[in-house]
Design a protein around this nucleic acid. Structure first.
Length: 167
DNA sequence: CCCTGATTCGC
DNA sequence: GCGAATCAGG
């Protein structure tokens, strides 16, 4: 299929409407998204009012690898981002407000408990005064070393006992 | 691994 | 001019 005037016109319209190249290609039929992009580029209308992507190539968030790695015993799991994890866990660490310290402002005696998604710019640390010998404040220190015992509920003995009923 | 657009280059 | 392959991101 070639680029008839109609198809080019439709291409322009859809592209201007903000549809992606693949979507346009699917709607036109007989062409791949590469063909659409190539045509778009050739027509000279590469840029468009794209509200979805603000072009954030500027100032990539400086995020050093793992600031918490130095801790003697870091929390086993960092709280998942709220985006795709609606599953309410018994304890919600993410909901706390005090995430004031960034990686830049985080000092030696400040709580290094991570708050939020490390891959996001909004990522912060707790920032409250940490305990003398630990990387976390008192509140986070208690929660950091806890999860191990909490899961020690149904052991082998209890399991065996529950199974015994069905024998 | 899914997606996005950008670019290249043989046709 | 065309578009597949490839690249560079999110």
């Amino acid at each position: 299929m070639g680029w008839t005037d109609e198809r080019v016109e439709l291409l322009k319209k859809l592209w201007q409407d903000g549809l992606s190249a693949s979507q346009i290609a699917k709607q036109l039929g007989g062409v791949t998204r590469n063909a659409v992009i190539g045509k778009v580029h050739r027509l000279g209308l590469s840029g468009r009012a794209a509200p979805s992507k603000p072009q954030r190539t500027v100032f990539k968030a400086p995020r050093p690898a793992r600031p918490v790695a130095a801790a003697p015993s870091a929390p086993r799991r960092i709280a998942e981002p709220v985006s795709s994890a609606p599953a309410p866990s018994p304890v919600r660490y993410v909901d706390e407000s005090p995430g004031t310290a960034t990686v830049l402002t985080l000092g030696a005696h400040m709580c290094k408990w991570p708050i939020g998604d490390p891959s996001l710019d909004s990522f912060t640390f707790c920032g409250r005064r940490s305990e003398e010998n630990g990387p976390y404040c008192h509140e986070h220190a208690t929660v950091a070393y806890q999860p191990a015992q909490a899961k020690k509920k149904s052991g082998a003995a209890e399991l065996a006992r529950s199974l015994r009923r069905y024998i």
